[in-house]
Amino acid sequence: MNLRIFGDPVLFHLGPVPVTETMVSSTVVSLLLITVAITLRYIVCSHPEHWLSVVAFMTVESFDNLVEEIVGRSHTVVSTLAGSLFLFIAACNIAGQFPGVHPATGSLATTSALAVVVFLSVPIAGIQTNGVWDYLKHYFRPNPLLMPLHVISELSRTLALAVRLFGNIMSGHLVVGLLVALAGFLVPIPIMALDLLIGLLQAYIFTILSTVYIGAAISAVEE
């Protein structure tokens, strides 16, 4: 039994760059999603009354509403980021349910990359909304002594974001693999169903938490 928990098998080398399985699966998922999105966009532009365009409307509307609810105002960039996060993570998690597919989110490198993107977009959003000085001042409030705690909390929540997603997806995958190895065919189906739920839930949580972090940075001065 080959338990892959932290390492990614390198499939081939593209020049000096090693191409891992995670990269391939995430690329495939991204391309699939982009294809679907372009198709939906074409349908939206050509047949606005088609049910698929209604699906697209609902998708975009739900993310916009989510961001408006959490941030307090509508913010297209944030909602685009949140929607992309949710769609990518959910697609990766669902793709992990297919046999032989290694989910991209089951790799700590991917989840930490996503978490770092969120981590970086927090100050970017804060600075863009409030200006550098105002944004930096909010680290020293309510007391300058709390500045290290602010920084640590930002770092730790990024770590938690990464590890939570990774742990959930990886453990679900691991449990399914163990069950297949121990009990055999068809036995892990309930666990796989739970994994499906957990995957969607984790994608939702990741999206919500990143939106909350970014929204907190946007409205940091107003507090």
């Binding site: 590890v163 939570r164 742990g167 959930n168 453990s171 839930l201 984790q202 949580i205």
Partner: peptide, 11 residues
Amino acid sequence: AMVESTAIFCL
């Protein structure tokens, strides 16, 4: 899910 994540951290 958030509480579960602590258990996941432990895992």
